[in-house]
Design a protein around this nucleic acid. Structure first.
Lengths: 156, 156
DNA sequence: ACAGGTTCCGAATACTCTTCGGGGCATGGC
DNA sequence: GCCATGCCCCGAAGAGTATTCGGAACCTGT
């Protein structure tokens, strides 16, 4: 199988199963995709080597951790150069409220996905965390009613 | 330990380790958090029962799957009522390009996170997938330069 | 102090992981 | 056609791990 082609049927099935349940035993995984356990193990390792499988992560529920409110914060950073942007990224990633951070093209420069306790907590985060920083030129906050992440993405 | 309190130190450590590597063996996990394997196993199951641990998922790299370009699509859906919104959500989640979908409060109604092959693919998705639908009143697309997801979120 | 409840541990069995040698099958050269 | 080569796959078996369960230790309120 060439390195640059899409996945074959077995790899795609392995990917699907592991995205669905990363803690499945290798034996059960092998049974689901109809190969021997040893074959399955080697294919999983190959997928990791190729970078297709980037990692395995437990999904913690922010609400169960006392952070039931989520929001997107769109941020414009001025001036938008490396010396300003890189410390800003580090700052955002160090915030415990941050779940994800995107650097985007458009009117806004960053989209920060946060999970907080309540509206007061969000307000404090915006005022003390963001608007107090000099490089933050503009903020726009959108509450998230619901956020659905599709776990099983595949080749197209 | 009360059900409504935050996690104790051991649970927090288990959560951190499993978010970091969901396929760690129970024995290694127990060693890392300094409890017996049997204790560790029971705590992990309790965290699942309590809903703190919502699942375990392999993280596949969209770029390695031939979809190196990501974007946010902000969508306004009119009329914004249940009969229109629910089919729209199903439609978006069924698209293979979709990675995540947020229902948000603000000028826009939804934020769709997609991964595509290239700009032409994105254009086709927007024109054929979204603007051709009658309930889609407005679209705004932002390319994503980089997207960083923080895997280890914890109690605050 | 003691009863009741909870949490933790370690031993033991059942089960799983992982390695490794070898078989089968496609591909390509001659 | 026929063999050599490389690739993928498999099963066996020892090493390692998961899981259960009985009992010890520890709170906590009376």
């Amino acid at each position: 199988m060439a390195e640059n082609t899409v996945l074959d049927a077995i790899d795609a099935a392995i990917l699907r199963e592991l995205q669905n349940d990363a803690r499945i035993s290798n034996k059960d995984l092998a049974a689901r995709v109809n190969v021997a356990a040893s074959t399955c193990l080697e294919r999983v390792r190959a997928l990791q080597r190729r970078g297709v499988l980037a990692g395995f992560h437990a999904d913690a529920d922010p609400a169960a951790l006392g952070r039931p409110l989520q929001a997107y914060i769109a941020v414009r950073v001025r001036p938008h150069n490396r010396d300003v942007v890189e410390p800003f990224i580090r700052f955002v990633l160090d915030l415990p409220e941050t779940i994800a951070l995107s650097h985007i093209a458009g009117a806004d420069d960053f989209l920060v996905h946060v999970a907080v306790r309540d509206a007061a907590h969000l307000q404090r985060l915006l005022l003390d965390g963001f608007t107090s920083r000099r490089e933050v030129a503009h903020l726009e906050t959108q509450l998230i009613f619901s956020h659905i992440r599709k776990w099983d993405i595949g080749p197209m």
